[in-house]
């Protein structure tokens, strides 16, 4: 067979090519170019505003001139501790956030389990769309819809009336209902992803070793799904903790967010608002440390 020689043209030395070659030789430059924009955003806009918040928490308002005095002190935190109203609001906020989280976890588990392990791919995709659908509509529209449901001459009382029953009306129970409804998708989706990752063979192995369904659920499914539950609960807990619109619309009681809002806008006491705003941050840090302690991030 006759041999054929192929001649290859030399690579062109265009500027783009040279730049690419430079990056290849200097991987650190490549990495910093890649991360410059997001890191810049994160440090300046995100961490920067947090830092200002923490700083402002130690400033104080001059009672006579209503000017902000920028010498640091703990007087805002002293006010929060001494005044029983703030303590009550904090406890109420955490209590409802916890109740919402537990409710959503209980509601989400069967749905997520069905989606991940039972449903056919068709049904599963349909369910994902259905669960995401409420997130496409405005938050306000949804809360106002609940107002219509819960108000005195609303749908709920109309439906319960014939049985001699009465709805909860506006208040803490209404808040719990609305929050549970609002954040449910944020619990279902991570839980679904977590349950889907558990291999079938683990459940089969448990049954093979003599465990019935209940025991397999308790000893295998639940511990392995715990990180997903924690991931979902971080959403439901922190979203409730920081909210101030729903409490305003379906109740007459206050959340941490309402106090912050009132102090920034009406009272113009930015330092006190900043101090109160650090409370949910501290609560979330404590919550995450507790979750870590419970081993929620270990089997990820």
């Amino acid at each position: 067979m006759a041999s054929v020689t192929y001649t290859q043209p030399p690579p062109r030395r265009s500027p783009g090519r040279r730049f690419a070659a430079f990056l290849y030789r200097h991987p650190r430059v490549q990495l910093s170019l890649l991360l410059a924009t997001p890191l810049g955003w994160l440090v300046i806009a995100y961490l920067g505003s947090l830092a200002v918040l923490f700083l402002a928490a130690f400033w104080r308002l001059d009672p006579f001139t209503a000017d902000i005095v920028k010498d640091p002190g703990l007087q805002n935190f002293q006010t929060l501790l001494d005044n029983p109203v703030y303590r009550e609001i904090t406890i109420r906020t955490v209590k409802i956030a916890a109740a919402v989280t537990i409710t959503d976890a209980i509601l989400a588990f069967p749905i997520a389990y069905y989606m991940a392990r039972v449903a056919t791919p068709r049904v599963r995709n349909l369910l994902v769309v259905l669960i995401l659908m409420p997130l496409w509509s405005s938050y306000l529209v949804k809360v106002y819809a609940w107002r219509v449901i819960l108000q005195e001459d609303g749908i709920l009382n109309w439906a319960l009336g014939p049985f001699g029953l009465h709805g909860p009306g506006f208040g803490e129970i209404a808040m719990w209902l609305v929050f549970s409804y609002l954040w449910l998708p944020y619990m279902i989706l991570p839980l679904y992803a977590g349950l889907e990752r558990i291999p079938d063979s683990l459940l089969e192995a448990s049954g093979d070793l003599g465990a019935r369904a209940g025991r397999t659920f308790r000893t295998i499914v639940l511990p392995l799904a715990l990180p997903a539950v924690v991931a979902g609960s971080i959403f439901t807990f922190s979203l409730t903790l920081g909210d101030f619109i729903t409490p305003n619309l379906v109740s007459s009681v206050q959340f941490i967010g309402n106090v912050v809002y009132a102090n920034v806008g009406v009272a113009n006491n930015l330092p006190l608002a900043a101090a109160f705003a650090t409370v949910p941050v501290l609560i979330m840090i404590a919550y995450l440390l507790l979750a870590k302690r419970l081993g929620a991030f270990e089997s990820l």
Binding site: P199, S201, L202, E204, A205, G207, D208, L209, G210, R212
Partner: peptide, 15 residues
Amino acid sequence: APFDRDVNTVFQDYA
């Protein structure tokens, strides 16, 4: 059911 049978399995992916 598997839990009522006196057999045990070694799985391909160990499980």
